[in-house]
Simulated scan of single mutants.
Amino acid sequence: MLKKSLYSLISIVILLSMVLTSMSIYTLYSKKKLSVDPKLKEVSGIEFDKFKRLWAINDSGDDPKLYRLNEDGSIAKEILVTNAKNIDWEDMTQNDFGHFFLGDFGNNKQERKWLTIYKIENPIDIKTDTTEAEIIKFTYPELDGSPIPPDKRNFDLEAFVAFGRHLYLFTKNRTEPFDGITNVYKVGDHAANFDAQLIDSFKTCTTMEKLCWITSAALSPDRTKLVLLDSTSIWLFENFTGDKFFSGDVSRIDLGIVTQKEAITFYDENTIVFTDEEFKGIGGNAYVIKLDEVTKTIIKKIPKASED
């Protein structure tokens, strides 16, 4: 009798696990918009140009190129940045004027002293298949050449946004033990050498580093919403003051199963597009969510000021 009960319990657990997995898969794939061209299997940054056409960049190993995608995910155009290198391109963003910024700042081993951001004009203004970039360099003043202790290894980077006349960089945490904190650094948005200024931090989660790493960031066109992306979630920040992005309301949007989600951007104030890299036949897609249609888990809510 005991053995029969144990088998029944195991069967129920397996069934529940299958149901939860199926729900998690549906949560992600119900949002799928298109499959990305295989040439962009390591897509690491996306942005819409002024004509609302989607552009993407690849991670390290590719040429220093931007790719415009057709509505079916195929490649419509390529632009080579002639004075750039793709050591480890990790994100793409744009400012209020439409300039694109390409972040060559991946720093997995945290051995790169100087990191690079390439600034180009909006792709609709590039009439040929090549362009030159304005070059922004920065370093972390905390790095003095000494070995970085395991609990301080928070100088990898895969996410940034343009706000005002500055760029804001969100670190990919590699501390041991993992503490889930993304630090925010600030640099100028023009050609110069900068010491990145640490201005804030936010803890995502500590479940597992690969689930909580911040891999991309985006600001809404009206600059009132910030999103950070990890492997399972979108972190949404609203009602913040100035560049204190974490000072307002915080909520989390569940994206279902774990895939290598690496790029996110806004199409409009309510519509978010994100992508994942292809790995063993999984991923390699672009997904769309509407903020007024998804479930948001409130992490922090700032009380409204009294009208008295």
Rank of each mutant, 00 (worst) to 15 (best):
302 I>L: 14
208 M>R: 13
36 V>K: 05
164 G>H: 05
74 S>P: 02
227 V>Q: 06
201 S>V: 00
41 K>F: 08
195 D>R: 09
222 D>Q: 10
121 E>G: 12
136 I>H: 09
205 C>K: 03
285 N>W: 00
165 R>K: 15
282 I>V: 15
25 I>E: 11
286 A>E: 00
31 K>F: 05
303 P>N: 09
308 D>W: 11
18 M>S: 15
248 G>L: 07
78 E>Q: 12
159 A>Y: 02
30 S>C: 07
157 L>P: 01
116 T>D: 11
2 L>V: 02
291 L>V: 03
86 N>E: 07
85 K>Q: 12
85 K>A: 07
48 F>K: 05
33 K>R: 14
147 P>M: 08
84 A>Q: 06
87 I>K: 11
181 I>H: 03
106 G>Q: 11
150 P>F: 07
263 A>M: 01
9 L>N: 05
193 N>P: 00
131 T>R: 10
228 L>A: 03
135 I>W: 04
41 K>T: 01
265 T>E: 06
302 I>A: 06
276 D>Q: 02
73 G>F: 01
167 L>V: 08
20 L>A: 14
90 E>R: 10
102 L>T: 03
61 G>C: 03
32 K>A: 10
241 T>L: 09
33 K>F: 11
92 M>I: 13
121 E>R: 14
206 T>H: 01
111 E>Q: 15
217 A>S: 08
3 K>S: 13
111 E>Y: 02
259 T>F: 06
149 P>F: 04
108 N>R: 13
233 S>P: 00
71 E>P: 00
115 L>G: 10
287 Y>M: 04
172 K>L: 01
275 T>G: 07
268 D>S: 14
96 D>M: 10
168 Y>V: 12
190 H>V: 15
